[in-house]
Write a protein that binds this DNA or RNA. Structure first.
Length: 263
DNA sequence: TACATTTGACCACA
DNA sequence: TGTGGTCAAATGTA
């Protein structure tokens, strides 16, 4: 599981070494007049290499955002994804009505799991929560049976966008989920930068492989990345947003999942 | 007693 | 310098 990350690191180092070599080569060309014919090609290669480096770096810091809705304000505090989190801070955010809560994996010290998540209530809707996950679980709980079950279920409905959210079963053993939170699942893979090209958008498929953790988060991204390359745009985002609004206004079935993307 | 939460302080970054 | 993210001591709870 972690081997992939090590491989990415060496790939990134390799790419950056190439970038450095090309920059030096370009530097040498600067003194020549006229510029050698190969200089332009070198620039193109340089841009391409930088692009690859960015994509690799993005894989190194998986960051996924999703929005969850609780059935009541009381339930909101219990929003849970089946994994163990420990709150380590809360902060008032500029321009936000509600403070942002910071959580990290309970097994941070015992198992060195560095995953964190930030939870913030939406200004307009106190029941709606923005949850941003940083990093992937490396602890034992990442192999939680319910998470695996969910993964299977979602994989059975590829490209469907909707899938019965069976966390109810999990709720039987997870007190937090007994609160019957209405998981209006809409998922929004977050990346530090917007996709600059179709090629970069296509990298999303590779990105999915960077979520070895068996949490819904990983599955969400896999589903989302099943969208055709190049479809990760504003237009598609609005389309999913519309679907999301419809889902909320006609939310008769709890635990129903849908896709959402607004990159 | 062990673990979780709260909260003020500190730090890094833009 | 302001803001967001994290730390760590104090406090709460089972």
């Amino acid at each position: 599981m972690d081997g992939g990350y090590g491989g990415e690191k060496s790939a990134l180092a390799s790419e950056l070494a190439q970038v450095l070599a090309m920059v030096r080569e370009l530097e040498a060309c600067m003194d020549q007049d006229p510029l050698p014919a190969g200089a332009r090609e070198l620039c193109a290669e340089l841009a391409s290499s930088v692009d690859r480096s960015i994509r690799i770096a993005r894989k190194e810091t998986p960051c996924v955002r999703r929005q969850l809705r609780a059935a009541s304000v009381q339930d909101a505090a219990a929003l849970d994804d089946g994994l163990s989190w420990r709150k380590y801070g809360q902060k008032d955010i500029l321009g936000a009505k509600y403070p942002r809560a910071y959580f990290r994996c309970t097994h941070r010290h015992s198992q060195g799991c560095l995953t964190t998540k930030h939870v913030q209530r939406a200004d307009g809707d106190p029941l709606l929560h923005d949850v941003v996950y940083h990093g992937a679980h490396t602890c034992v709980q990442a192999a939680h049976p319910s998470a695996q079950q969910l993964r299977q279920e979602l994989q059975l409905q590829p490209g469907h966008g909707h899938g019965a959210h069976e966390d109810q079963d999990q709720g039987a053993s997870t007190p937090a989920l007994e609160t019957e939170c209405l998981w209006a699942g809409l998922l929004e893979p977050m990346t530090p930068y917007s996709f600059a090209s179709a090629a970069a958008a296509g990298a999303g498929a590779d990105f999915a492989g960077c979520f070895p953790l068996l949490s819904p988060t990983a599955l969400d991204w896999q589903l989302r990345s099943s969208q055709p390359a190049g479809s990760v745009g504003v237009g598609i985002g609005m389309e999913f947003e519309t679907q999301f609004e419809e889902l909320f206004t006609s939310a008769t079935e709890p635990f129903q999942w849908d896709l959402y993307a607004d990159n």
